[in-house]
């Protein structure tokens, strides 16, 4: 039966438009403000959206990457630029690690019948339950006094990897289950060893699953504040940490901080528009399958 497009009451379209405006509005406002000078921000006569935009805020934030010296920047504060690099390092490495380790484990759990899917989904859910605030004290203590990993990239990457592993294993399992075992058997007949089978046969097939898992993992590592704040040192601070540090100061430079916030928000926004379907699948799977 073909789904017929019924003509709908225009009120529904109005409602949808209203909802879209409501959810995008604050983000658009942040984007607009990031192109405003601080004087304009505090001038009530300047409208929220229609004003003469400037890229000065972005120049201030990214001054240590620019090939020219912006005239309005007297002293280039490298904090934000460095934090962006740190966030990228931490996000990319921890995502890569989590995916590699996670899909190996998922593969072993599915193909070699270790524990049932029940155990894994149970662990995933239990992990979902643990708030980062609860991990704060022990992770800080152990990383500082026992592992000696405080203020290093390794320390932050380690905890992000551990936090994301259960979810990644769980979501990849559901993709690996669907890989026909005949494919693997054929490869093995041709003389491939288990590692070759895994990397050359299984991995290419589960790419969509890997993409979904990568987005979820990267987003958490990229956005996380609490543990990064406890574990990072002056030179390893990530963007969320620098944002919080700069707003607790007395005088907030809204234009600059909104530009920083926007830079932090851009990757997740891009992911959303590129892969909204996978994201929704990942999100609904978590609830519908328990």
């Amino acid at each position: 039966m073909a789904v017929q497009k019924e003509t709908q009451n225009p009120a529904f379209y109005a409602l949808i438009v209203a909802l879209v405006v409501m959810s995008v509005g604050p983000i658009a406002l942040m984007l607009a403000t990031s192109f405003k000078t601080n004087v304009d921000v505090y001038d009530v006569s300047v409208p929220a959206f229609f004003f003469s935009p400037t890229i000065k805020n972005y120049e201030t934030v990214l001054c240590n990457f620019l090939w020219y010296e912006p005239a309005h920047v007297d002293y280039c504060d490298p904090t934000f630029g460095r934090a962006l690099v740190n966030s990228l390092i931490v996000g990319l490495i921890s995502t890569g690690l989590t995916l590699t380790i996670g899909c190996m484990a998922a593969y072993a759990l599915v193909r070699f019948r270790f524990m049932g899917r029940g155990t894994v989904s149970m662990t995933t859910l239990l992990m979902r339950m643990v708030p980062p605030a609860v991990l704060l004290v022990p992770v800080f203590g152990i990383w500082t006094f026992q592992y000696g990993l405080d203020q290093t990239y390794t320390g932050i990457i380690l905890i992000y990897t551990a936090m994301n592993l259960p979810f990644v294993i769980w979501i990849l399992q559901s993709f690996i289950v669907q890989v026909p075992i005949q494919l693997e058997e054929a490869a093995r007949m041709d003389g491939a060893n288990p590692f070759q089978v895994f990397f050359l046969v299984v991995l290419p097939i589960i790419q969509p699953g890997l993409a979904a898992a990568a987005i979820f993992t990267f987003r958490i590592a990229w956005n996380e504040f609490l543990l990064a704040n406890a574990l990072s040192g002056r030179s390893t601070r990530t963007v969320p940490v620098t944002i919080v540090n700069s707003i607790t100061e007395y005088d907030i430079n809204w234009g600059v901080i909104m530009a920083t916030g926007m830079l932090l928000a851009i990757p997740p926004i891009l992911f959303t528009f590129v892969a909204s379907k996978q994201i929704i699948t990942g999100m609904t799977a978590g609830a519908v399958k328990g």
Partner: peptide, 24 residues
Amino acid sequence: MLRTVFILPMMIAPIVVGLMWRYM
């Protein structure tokens, strides 16, 4: 479109969400 746009608030860093609302 609505569904895509609706995920945005959840994808953006909570720190940034706080920032936007603090400004508003």
